[in-house]
Design a protein around this nucleic acid. Structure first.
Lengths: 151, 151
DNA sequence: TGCCGTCAGTTCGCGCAGCGAACTTACGGC
DNA sequence: GCCGTAAGTTCGCTGCGCGAACTGACGGCA
């Protein structure tokens, strides 16, 4: 923690400030697609597969009641659908509509492009190292898969 | 971008997911001090020195009208004060009150501690490397100093 | 069969966050 | 002294997030 002799930033400040940066880029990209950050995040999670409200609540770290509203708004935009499970009438599965799927793809693609540009000054080798180290931090801390990798 | 052969995560996903992680830790730490993330961020910025509304607006990436409300709420809690500049009666300087300064110190200290724990599985050497690489990303992209390093 | 604890999700009321448009006041040049 | 401009505020709006209370369905168990 704290500055090093050579003026290098501490790992804590680096994490916080890069978070600030990614937040801004993410929000900006979402806005260009008519979404909020939270809505974009929801769509990205649903790209993998449909989930129930409880699962989404856990993955996104939100109270169930917060999720109801978020899904409501996104459903109202026609991007998502509540599907009921005939096996268990209590549960609901949130799935992307075709329109939502298209929008999610577009948002995901642009967001990836923008975020990929952030470390563009780094060498390919350094980017790999960064991905490795950050990836280990992420897995060590059991961060839910709120953003997937595609091949 | 995309997964590597060895299952390593891509740099984009690593950035997004670590951002998600830091956001959560930051919010949790703020909450323990009776703050929201945004209020905590404001206090951290003001730890360095007082700023005008316009400067804060730029640094935090918010509209001026958004800042008015944020400062209002924090001022109402007695953490911050609007000081008027006799040289230019239009401008206002936002400064921490003694109470706000104490709270900011406590919040900052705990947040640093928590965030420092995130890469605790990494070797000291790897943490340094991570700090270096992320620090370069941050400076390359001209992220405002929303979180400082102390020695 | 009927009851009851539990689980999934929603509703409600609240305060915070963020925005743009319109406004107020002060500064400073001419 | 006037006018363009700059700094902040106000207003009305939507979205976000929470906890407490509620509804309805499931499933065990007698």
């Amino acid at each position: 923690m704290g500055k090093h002799d050579d003026g290098q930033i501490g790992v804590v400040a680096a994490l916080v400030r890069s978070t600030f940066l990614v937040n801004a880029v993410y929000a900006e990209s979402a806005q260009k697609h008519g979404l909020t950050s939270q809505q974009g995040q929801l769509l990205c999670v649903l790209m993998a597969q449909p989930y129930g409200m409880g699962e989404l609540s856990t993955m996104l770290g939100l109270a169930k009641s917060s999720l109801t509203g978020l899904v409501d708004r996104v459903e109202r935009s026609g991007l998502v659908r509540r599907e009921s499970d005939p096996q268990d009438l209590r549960t609901v599965r949130i799935a992307l509509t075709p329109q939502g799927s298209r929008l999610a793809e577009g948002f995901y693609e642009e967001t990836c492009r923008r975020i990929a540009q952030l470390p563009s000054e780094l060498s390919a080798r350094d980017r790999d190292t960064l991905a490795d180290l950050l990836g280990r931090v992420v897995t060590d801390n059991k961060v839910p898969v709120v953003f997937i990798d595609h091949d």
